[in-house]
Design a protein around this nucleic acid. Structure first.
Lengths: 130, 130
DNA sequence: ACATATATGTAATAATATAACATTTATAAG
DNA sequence: CTTATAAATGTTATATTATTACATATATGT
């Protein structure tokens, strides 16, 4: 018998919180929100976040030090991520565009090197803020 | 009369250090290295870094919280940045590829939104580490 | 039921970044 | 030149983000 749900207790609690959120959550915001569930210290949060990132359930928005749930069913272990970030309301949307992914994974630099893994962050105004 | 060199004293000291470095420098590494020049406290470093980023003289590598000098003479005020980052030796190279920039600045998401500003970080192995 | 890997709990601390406020220096306009 | 204004600096304190280290517990495979 094998597990259907491969998330541990803390991982599940933290994933649920991020997954319900409409905006990226920061580690200490997460901590404050899960203390009632018994997760009391930063390492517990960071370990769960690390694992969730590693398995592609969530992504880190590097420019904001914040985390969003993966909205792209295709990237179980995600190496190729793209996001649009509103400079006004801070909203973040994951971009799932096969052509873009293909273009970037097949991109080759001046030395002829190709890259399987990338992170792309677009900045602009979302529809609401325009 | 107008200034040839538009950098202030602290900005110049910090830019010179970053510009000479073969690898990305972190804010506190910079701080330790400029203390002998009279820059003693974090805010002095962060303010200079902010200004240098704003004017495109340096870029922040978001995934590393570190800074590199701009190697792209074209981006005085840089909004469209791309880097290759070696996962082994941590080396970072700025990518200056007109076609890539054009592709990304003309990219339009599912809602039809285009983005003038972006930051792209590629991860892989550099030639030395392969 | 044993070995091993994975996850948890906890305290302390390291690393990264900003707030607030006083002062000084540069720049532009009268 | 001198006055107003913006930009930069110096300094102390503190906020925010992240990791180390170590003890314990739970899950997984043989």
């Amino acid at each position: 018998m094998y597990k259907e749900n491969n998330l541990s207790k803390n991982q599940q609690i933290i994933f649920d919180l991020i997954n319900k959120s409409s905006e990226p959550l920061k580690a200490y915001t997460i901590l404050f929100n899960v203390q009632k569930k018994g997760i009391k210290a930063p390492p517990q949060v960071y370990r769960a976040l690390d694992k969730l990132v590693e398995t592609g359930k969530i992504h880190k928005i590097e420019s904001k030090n914040a985390f969003v749930a993966c909205r792209n069913s295709g990237c179980e272990i995600s190496k190729a991520t793209a996001f649009s970030i509103c400079e006004s309301c801070e909203m973040v949307d994951e971009i799932n565009d096969a052509k873009l992914t293909k273009y970037l994974t097949s991109f080759s630099d001046k030395k002829g090197t190709k890259y399987k893994r990338f992170n792309l962050e677009f900045f602009g105004l979302c529809k609401k803020c325009k």
